[in-house]
Design a protein around this nucleic acid. Structure first.
Lengths: 331, 331
DNA sequence: GAGTCTTTTGCAATCGATCTCAGCAACCGA
DNA sequence: TCGGTTGCTGAGATCGATTGCAAAAGACTC
């Protein structure tokens, strides 16, 4: 099937291709009658603009990359879903790029985004943002980061107030009567992860309880490692705050294989509020991140970026999603 | 930062732009000394080809779309990950497209893929493949489908032998002593889903056991609905085969809230073999699909497609992943 | 109906690459 | 020395769109 180009439409409509071009991209610049005629002919031929040619000429496309480290992490999957929807609503086409945590790949993608004439890109890092890799574009204000960025307020960011989220979790457990509340940081690296850890320390202090950090020994899997650590505590914590839902899953799974039940023996609270948690066993109580807002605002920040507005730093509030993995402390 | 084009490199190297072009894309057509000189100058300038311009002129790019209905389904997420890796290994850049199950969107993406000059595309459908939307490209042999396609053997496909997978599951439960083995089909629509259901019927017959299909009443959520159905059976099945891991999760979660334990009260086996299942509570026994092979072979089928080879239909074998959600039947 | 102003449209250059064709040199054998 | 290859490079058209500029067509005034 021969591809139809703008010239084919122009010929069929008896006008010049520049008129066809204008009929599509600057409707007000062409007489109404002409425009409708052209558009009708175009529709008949099943014509649609070639986005590549358009991008090449205009020097800007509607391809927006979303760069994530690992799409099998449901947090990023949900983020991808909501961001795709938001992008679409704004007329962008989202390109999901999976880096597998490789900084080099991230840089590659950012470069490639540049040569695709992307108006801007969105990076959701798993590890601390490599400013060097980003700097070139960051200075051009072309990247939005989901998470904080050190030292460089010129990069717009959207974050969730992790500290508040942790407070919510600690308060919830405290109110349930728990006094030995441990924190499982899992793998750290991002600013948000660090924020959560710090916030846990402060919250513990505020409530006058002893902070207990549950880390896996090096080389052992997270779930088993954290539970090993838990069981080695002289006074076993009655509740655990996991730094994200995936870690909560792993902990609960491992507790189960050791014969400990949640929330019977230990209360566990996650951080993310994934939909998947509603189908966990037990249904996971969690600090909900407003993932849809995260995606939507990232797109909006990108838009205001290209509009020349100063870089903004949006902080969203988390909320508590109480399900069934936490319960009253019974000594 | 002014973008450097092929002409800039040509000027700096003192050659014509066609020579630069050849130095990159047909190295043998240019004298070694010239090529090295050009390449060195290009490297100094930090030049790299603009893929869009290249695609426009060549009429073919290296952008391969992978169209999935729902990336928050970990099956598709894992598929996306492995396919991305495979694509990269073959020099393609994978574009993940999320349709949200909307057939119209699928068609849009296929169209857009076409105008991006993709050499081929990969569709992993959740519902029966809409041939009408695909036909145009299908006839050009430009689409690879993960799942079967009715009536049109000209579309290359890669599938997992679902029937064999179900046999594996039924056999496993039968050997554990279970005699009332139910099947929860969840949402049907794809051919693989239908295959699994049919295979369950045949396997039940082969073992001489009564088939029990657990469906949710219309309008109620899958997990609760299936468990409602389970509990309404006069003789309660002692084992359930879920048509995929996500449904197994939902079932186990719901059983948990009703006070039933897995595998104590009911054995549950999933279908997918997701990594996530290893961190479920209990660790999920499942029929493992070779997802990495699925992705790799989809890419390979695409490559042989553009090489003009006749469309192939690859069927992969699943295997049994025994973890902790099934156990011996104890009457 | 001429003169002026405003729309509307066509022309042609352009974005950054590829690729056919032709020219030029070097080289071969006779 | 000459005709014929072969190998390398340059010229220029081209992919499918956009856009500044100029010409043509209306609209308006007097």
């Amino acid at each position: 099937m021969a591809e139809i180009s703008i010239d084919d439409v122009a010929d069929a409509a008896g006008v010049h291709r520049s008129t066809v071009s204008r009929a599509f991209s600057r409707p007000s610049a062409v007489r109404t009658a002409t425009r409708e005629h052209v558009l009708r002919i175009a529709a008949e031929l099943g014509y649609s603009m070639n986005p590549l040619a358009q991008a090449l000429r205009r020097g800007s496309s509607n391809l927006v990359p979303l760069i994530v480290p690992d799409i099998t992490n449901p947090f990023f999957a949900e983020l991808a879903r909501t961001t795709t929807a938001a992008a679409e609503a704004h007329g962008y086409q989202l390109m999901l790029c999976i880096t597998d945590g490789d900084t080099g790949q991230t840089a590659d993608y950012v470069t490639s985004m540049h040569s695709m004439f992307s108006p801007f890109g969105i990076v959701a890092p798993s590890t601390r943002v490599d400013l060097e890799a980003l700097r070139r574009y960051a200075f051009q204000n072309r990247v939005v980061v989901i998470d904080r960025v050190e030292d460089d307020p010129s990069v717009p960011t959207v974050t969730v107030d992790s500290a508040h989220g942790v407070d919510l979790a600690v308060d919830h457990l405290f109110e349930l009567g728990h006094r030995r509340i441990a924190y499982a940081p899992g793998i750290v690296g991002t600013y948000t992860a660090q924020d959560r850890w710090d916030a846990y320390g402060r919250a513990a202090e505020r409530h006058g309880i002893l902070p207990v950090i549950l880390e896996a020994a090096p080389g052992v899997e997270l779930g088993p490692g954290i539970v090993d650590h838990l069981l080695s505590e002289s006074v076993r914590p009655s509740a655990i705050i996991a730094s994200n839902d995936l870690i909560a899953f792993a902990i609960i799974s491992e507790l189960g294989t050791r014969g400990l039940t949640v929330p019977g023996d230990v209360s566990v609270i996650g951080f993310d509020g994934l939909d998947l948690g509603a189908h966990f066993n037990p249904r996971l109580t969690s600090v909900r991140q407003p993932i849809a807002d995260l995606g939507r605002i990232a797109i909006e920040l990108g838009e205001s970026l290209i509009a020349g507005a100063p870089p903004d730093h949006v902080v969203l509030e988390p909320s508590l999603l109480i399900r069934s993995s936490t319960q009253k402390f019974a000594s």
